[in-house]
Design a protein around this nucleic acid. Structure first.
Lengths: 351, 351
DNA sequence: TTGTAAGCGTTATCAC
DNA sequence: GTGATAACGCTTACAA
């Protein structure tokens, strides 16, 4: 950063550093890459030259020869956008879940010097382009957040032999691809246990989309645990994991089961939409209706009263995804195991 | 994608395509880059060879020679993390605002074939590293979301002559750097107008952090407009733009001004935290207290009743940032103007 | 342990 | 209009 009077000088290259330090390019390269086979005296000369010139490696040049990008892509895969209703792309981006994933990924990626690229796939063309980029080594691997189980991307990534980790269990007849998830079935069971422990018997649930493994698993887990408590009848309506969808589903559920006293909403965000509907119907929480959510996202605290919910440690899970991905990138061919986290109930005041 | 029996074959290069098409590398490069100086017959031969081989340009190689990365960085700049309370980095990531920005940026960037990298700067070391990367051409420009006005990054980017656009007005004695913002002062005035029109006179406000231009401008704009309505006394407490902070500030405000009948909360997220505090104090909305928020984020709809608020078209603003940045990248040296959007009141049921 | 030199895949400057 | 050919900045055998 020192000798830069012209203001817009060309960034220093390995060659420049070598000249200043009085060694060869190769030696500088070794020092920069932390090789152990360098004379301590030369090393410190090089290190001084590096800071004197403000040298930073050119990633494009490095990438070209190493065939690694030192970056990974966070791919958000969505259904095709609905032209009219969604003026802007990426519904997922405004879900609190997304930010938590980013935070967890960066926690691990940053210390490793790996950059994070953000990509959106929402139709066949964008998926093809995406896989093309990745096959070119533009990114070394993929963390995939998929919003629907018919998504062809996991299959495409597997076939292209690209390191990838899914942010949820893949769809059932899917490729064997590493993923990080919580035990959705058991987690939903905790919600059932809670309602049963409170003596609630007239049970309803706003489920997630049933074409997503998470939606399906939570509904089944809830039902199974309820059955174990001797409750076999449960009114269920399908939501879409959005707040507005939660409100709409709640209205239908209430029409179907006006006397309900125990409610499981399969995501906090949907609960945020559902609660006002309950209030408008004259219900008090938790006296009239005990409500349990799912996620333990910021939406749970946004509820009034604060929502009792099933905690999903999204940041930790994302950090684990990053670790799995880096390992997979580091040891190509070796398949890494999936990791399933345990869910736990966070008791607050709604149930 | 056709001739790929080995599964993990080396991606096709320009050379490969040239061989298949029976032309030179240079011609293929011209076709790929859309040059007009190529014979239509050769062009179509090349195009066929491209799709036959599944060729995708290697960005690293291209970058190396063009000195452009065809990517921009979304930099989130935060104060140093507080070791104990924040187990994970990037508080900004979980703000609904962040997702909206991403969505708006991608809307413009994607069609331009420009990738988005996500970076976090939260201490001196990370800032230096960041500027180093960028000076190396690792990204062509920066969209900066800064969470505090003492942030040295705008200054650093300006000095390094890096194309950059700020997601808000820079701090007052700051570098002349392009930014996109709304007219915060006028926007907050709309909130004041609304409360005045409703006949409210015992006014309070939960402001944003006063060390941020947005926080300061909204408070001043609110006060100035109120004064124009003949209301000169207003109780103000400082919040931090988070939900928990909104709740805490609301408690202090209520202690100071228990009889208040008109409230302006400088962000919807803070309002989400403030409302339950009001309810617990026995206030009804909007009868006892009329409340106006700011942002028109998803949090406004999460409020019960739905929050009357000042709309900030974040997605559109982010799209504009992307456009400004691309223009700045395309015409180096030329400074682009800043863009100030108009705020508007969205009337719902809280005021 | 250090230096030399050969690429990595692309664009761009030339002659043709 | 097309084709050689020389960079771009780096890593990595291989030679010394």
């Amino acid at each position: 950063m020192t000798a830069d009077p012209s203001g817009m000088a060309r960034p220093a290259t390995l060659e420049d550093v070598a000249r200043v330090a009085g060694v060869s390019r190769a030696t500088v390269s070794r020092v920069v890459n932390g090789a152990h086979t360098v004379d301590p005296r030369l090393r410190s000369a090089v290190e001084q030259a590096v800071s004197q010139t403000g040298y930073v490696p050119n990633r494009a040049a490095r990438s070209l020869v190493t065939r690694r990008a030192d970056s990974v892509a966070l791919v958000v895969s969505e259904r095709e956008r609905r032209a009219v209703h969604d003026p802007f792309i990426g519904r997922m981006f405004t879900d609190p879940y997304f930010g938590r994933v980013v935070s967890g990924l960066l926690e691990v990626l940053r210390p490793s010097g790996v950059q994070l690229m953000l990509m959106l796939a929402d139709d066949a063309a964008s998926r093809d382009q995406l896989v093309g980029y990745l096959r070119q080594g533009h990114a070394d691997g993929v963390v995939l957040i998929s919003s629907h189980s018919a998504d062809p991307l996991p299959e495409m990534l597997t076939r292209a032999r690209l390191p990838a980790v899914l942010a949820a269990r893949p769809a059932d007849p899917g490729p064997p691809i590493a993923h990080v998830d919580i035990d959705q079935h058991a987690g939903a069971g905790l919600a059932a246990d809670r309602l049963a422990a409170l003596g609630r018997t007239r049970i309803g649930t706003v489920s997630g989309p049933l074409d997503m493994p998470a939606g399906r698993d939570r509904l089944e887990g809830f039902r199974d645990a309820l059955a174990a408590h001797g409750i076999h009848e449960v009114a269920a309506v399908e939501g879409d994991f959005t707040q507005a969808g939660g409100a709409a589903a709640m209205r239908r559920l209430l029409a179907e089961r006006p006397d309900l006293d125990g409610l499981f909403v399969a995501s906090d965000l949907m609960a945020l939409g559902a609660l006002p509907v309950l209030y408008r119907a004259g219900k008090r929480l938790p006296e009239d209706v005990a409500v349990v959510g799912f996620d333990d996202s910021s939406a749970a605290l946004a509820c009034d009263p604060p929502l009792t919910t099933v905690r999903q440690p999204v940041e930790e899970m994302a950090a684990e995804m990053a670790r799995l991905l880096l390992r997979q990138i580091g040891e190509p061919g070796r398949t890494v195991p999936s990791v399933i986290f345990r869910a736990e109930l966070v008791a607050r005041q709604s149930a």
